[in-house]
Amino acid sequence: MEIFQKKQRLPVLLRLFTSTLYLSAFTFGGGYVIVTLLKNTFVDKYHWISEEEMLDLTAIAQSAPGAVAVNGAAAVGCRIAGIPGVLASVLGAVIPPMAILSLVSLCYTVFCSNPWISAALNGMKAGVGAVITSVVWDMSSRIVRSKDPANTLILILSFCLCWFGGVNVICIILAAAAFGVLRSLHAKKGGSAA
């Protein structure tokens, strides 16, 4: 199932580990931030997986229990290098928060009340928002240009449901998947009738 040959494995694992280590140190603001950063690295920079695969793996990350950031790293690691890949990328994703928390827990009152730190973290929100906006722009314009109006409709409808309707993320993912199953069954029926 691995994308790479055996002899290429070690450098790939090493790169997987260092990439998730580096990205995980900057995933402020929730699990989806690391998904956009993983996309930037493994889709746009290394071309190890396609954008569609990245979205599928994100759905997997969301459907499994646990933190989306860890799950996303594990899913990408598994797709790229199998079980050793899972270990490399999860280790990379977990070490930065562990190291930072260990340091901060020693002196957390100083850390929490420092105005410079809170200003920098606040400013980073604007940057994180811009990174996500940019990725969402690329992904949604691809969906709209794919000339399948149903997919554009799912995009708009699922956003409205979770933003305005407050519908649970897992319900939306399951509903979209169910729609896909029905659609493919319908297409098959239409195909055999014709």
Binding site: Y32, D56, V136, I143, I173, A176
Partner: peptide, 16 residues
Amino acid sequence: LASLRPAVVSMIAKAG
């Protein structure tokens, strides 16, 4: 999966 992908994009958009 083709129907699932747009839903995932909108989840990312919501987080952003």
